[in-house]
Amino acid sequence: MSAPPTPLPLVLAGARGHGRWHLANIRRLQDQGVVRLAGICELTPLGPGELGTFAGEPPAQSADFGALLDSTGARAAVVCTPIQTHTELALTAAARGVHLLLEKPPAATYADYTRMTDAVREAGVACQIGFQSFGSHAVPAIRQLVRAGAIGTVQGYGAAGAWVRDDAYYRRAPWAGRRRIGGTDVVDGVLTNPLAHAVATALELADSGTADDVAGIDTQLFRANDIEADDTSCLRVTTAGGAPVTAAVTLCAERAGEPYVIVHGDRGRITFWYKQDRVLVQRAGRGPEEAVHGRTDLLENLAAHLAHGTPLLVPPHRTGAFMRVVEAVRTAPEPAALPAGAWYTEPATATTGARRVVRGIDALVAAGADTLSLFSELGAPWAHPSEVSTP
């Protein structure tokens, strides 16, 4: 009988904020014998309360990522740090032969993304980008439906996301809602970070995930909040394959809703609520069909790749098209401030802070995905065609 595989020793860089999710996921996989948390990299060490169930077996902690990788002998690292730090941390890991799960977006600029992909390739390390929705078993199921002609000829892919974020969201970190800090690009806008999955998932379903799959990008970037970055935006990616990919998203929704992607065919449509792994197929001559699919965890997939050669679900080249979007947003004109009459302030409640709401945005976002249209094409009075940039 062969010995059980040795758990993959890893370091978590960034254990607060969204990093808490990764910490809990590592706990789950450690209990299954898949991984072992060897260290945590944070500027300020986690206390016993933050370590939770790891407090009884505390991992090494250090603010020096490279030194922590060296001292722990980690074979992999999960990087969940501010966007502008991703590239340098990835380079630090690659230089030591350490494999990566790198949170999205993989970099703040296309040049940094290229530096990162070159470094991991030359070092021969595995790198998984943290688009969790790519692990949904709904993705190959939808592709198979499309290949089988279930909805006829595909006309396009429309993503929609209407989320709610209060004032505290933009005060949670110095980089929140910023396009740049000093001379460093951050690009923390709605399209590139909080609702990045909507854009990336639509591109993945369109089988247009690589940089070469992008023929052009139109963006319309707006903000209701007093921030640098965009909080209410839309885009259209013209793909090399011809089918357009659009996204309409906001953090200033009237009511929070589940984000989704619609695959439009000339004989039906498929709607994918990617956070729920839920799929609805509507086609001519048949009743609606709904299914909920399973999901493969990206860290578990990385461990399986290293142990058994299982293909990675989100290798860096599959996010090249998304990084073209990040670059288009980064180099676009500054997001236009919405006129005062376009939004109002929702007062704070016992559980949430005050927040800005764009009037009619929920219907506008849904219409964008339904018709593959930009805000200006839908007649939004504050959206003008002159605010569209095409890199």
Rank of each mutant, 00 (worst) to 15 (best):
A321K: 04
V325A: 02
E334K: 12
L302W: 01
L306P: 05
L299Y: 02
P335L: 07
A342M: 10
G341I: 09
H317D: 15
V329P: 05
L306W: 08
P315F: 10
A336N: 03
N301D: 13
T319L: 09
M323I: 06
L299C: 08
L338C: 11
L299T: 01
A307Q: 15
G320M: 03
A336L: 14
V326M: 03
V325K: 00
A307R: 15
L302Q: 01
L299D: 01
A303P: 03
R324A: 07
T310N: 06
N301E: 06
V325G: 02
T331S: 14
E327C: 09
E334V: 14
A337N: 10
A303T: 02
R324Q: 13
T331P: 05
V314R: 03
V326D: 02
R318D: 13
V329M: 09
H317W: 11
T331W: 08
P333F: 06
L313P: 09
G309E: 08
A342T: 11
L298H: 00
L312F: 06
M323S: 03
A337D: 13
A321S: 04
A336R: 15
E334N: 09
P339K: 10
T331I: 08
A303K: 01
A332L: 08
V314M: 11
E327S: 10
A321Y: 00
V326P: 02
G341D: 15
A340P: 04
P333C: 07
R324T: 01
V314Y: 00
V325E: 03
L302K: 02
V329R: 01
A336I: 14
V326T: 08
A340E: 15
H305K: 07
H305V: 06
A328I: 05
P316N: 03
P339R: 12
V325R: 02
D297M: 02
H308R: 15
R324E: 10
R330H: 13
T331C: 13
P339N: 12
V326L: 06
F322C: 03
H317K: 05
G309K: 08
T319A: 10
P316K: 03
H317Q: 14
R324D: 02
E300K: 11
P316V: 05
L299P: 00
L299E: 04
L298G: 04
L299S: 02
L306C: 08
A328D: 00
A332R: 01
M323H: 04
P315Q: 09
L313Y: 10
G320Q: 04
A307P: 07
P316D: 05
H317N: 12
L306A: 06
N301L: 04
R324I: 01
H308T: 13
G341N: 12
P311V: 06
L299M: 13
A328T: 05
T310S: 11
E334W: 09
